[in-house]
Design a protein around this nucleic acid. Sequence first.
DNA 1: AAGTGGTCTAGACCACATT
DNA 2: ATGTGGTCTAGACCACTTC
Lengths: 255, 255
Amino acid sequence: MSRTAIPRYQQLKDGIIERISSGELRPGDRVPSENELVLAESVSRMTANRALRELTDEGYVERVAGRGTFVSDFRAQSHVREVQNIAEEIAARGHRHTADVIARVQAEARGEVAQALHVDAGTPVFHVVVVHRENGTPIQVEDRYVLADFAPDTLAQDFARQTPSAYLTSIMPLTEAEQVVRARLPDREIRQLLDMADYEPELVVIRRTWANGRAVTFARLHHPGNRYELVGHHKPYAQHDAARADVVQLESLKK
Amino acid sequence: MSRTAIPRYQQLKDGIIERISSGELRPGDRVPSENELVLAESVSRMTANRALRELTDEGYVERVAGRGTFVSDFRAQSHVREVQNIAEEIAARGHRHTADVIARVQAEARGEVAQALHVDAGTPVFHVVVVHRENGTPIQVEDRYVLADFAPDTLAQDFARQTPSAYLTSIMPLTEAEQVVRARLPDREIRQLLDMADYEPELVVIRRTWANGRAVTFARLHHPGNRYELVGHHKPYAQHDAARADVVQLESLKK
DNA sequence: AAGTGGTCTAGACCACATT
DNA sequence: ATGTGGTCTAGACCACTTC
């Protein structure tokens, strides 16, 4: 290998990641086996093994001895599993999730939204506002913007049935997220939508999410401070439990 | 290799981790080189390489071609890098960190604290309360409990100079953390310590941290909602940016 | 010059799953 | 029987650092 050359195993990894990102390889699809890579890419089996093993550690694929290597199901173990799947979180608690679609329109990115998505002002986006309820009690106002060209069918979706996040994740794995969490007093609209008491703080999660290397959606998630909290677990260097953060119910509400 | 045998590379990893956990190998110390492992452990160099490489990925050691492999400095790139190193975060912004120690006493674990640390009520703990300031403005009240037998020298520390987190991390790498984030109205004491306005919400982070497989410290971190926010970046399966969450200053305060 | 990590090869044995 | 992943070996070349 010459000086600044990219290692062979890294090239193999990049190639497979590219085939997954482009949609050529979809979740569940079989990835070339070690022996197939040996023949096709003219590498030794150890090199092919390292590429596939590291892709496993990084969550892109799953390997089963005797069967093969398969692209991970991004929906099931969503790459960025957070408040995104609020419907699943509620279901996991054995409760009933319902959602009201307050708004679902096409708009143009402006100000904070344009800046967050790294697009020029005026870029077409879809703006969706959904109130999520757990057993009838409102627990989240999802105020979301989506790049129109990333998800052109957004306006045709029924977000009372499938959450915007679930829809977006079904289009392409969301690979990266950045979020800011704030405590503040809500404005009147949020307070009314969430049925909050006077002076009750809200927990706001502002999140940008990337797919295929670009920011595709920007959301403000408003939660009533008295009824909700954010739980995160960090096992920094463990293999499969990378980063996790779920919204769970407060003890006081459970009783 | 027989059936349920532990792989050789894993045995090497376990041995080195044990030597680090026991304190035999301290941050900066040199770890046996690949060739030394080949001779001492009767393995091939590839096996020794895999063990050391994975320890690198997991943050235990750092490798420099031509020099050797060294135990990571847990203080610098703390395993669970979060609000923990608030002094470093402030320094990174070019600001001045100061701290006032409000309390530093020995106590017995009770209720929530005993439950969080998985110990019986009455277990000796140290209770430390520190107010952290950025350029003089209070930004965090750290209300922390530490298992006495984990850090027996806690009461001798000057937490105005070195934060409790930095001290704990220097004893042993903190390998795992669980945190809950809440928005709420602060009680009077917190409001006074943080110099907060009436009805200003606080952002509370409640965190348990593990070292060597057991929960060793429990902390409530109180922040003024108007001046602070929590930033998290999730690049789920990227290599070195495992989990990260820093406290950063709000734009409004920067101006 | 000697030692280090970084990479790669060509083979091997094993347990397991599928056919 | 064949293919898969999981592991391991013995050797090799390279770039880099230290002596």
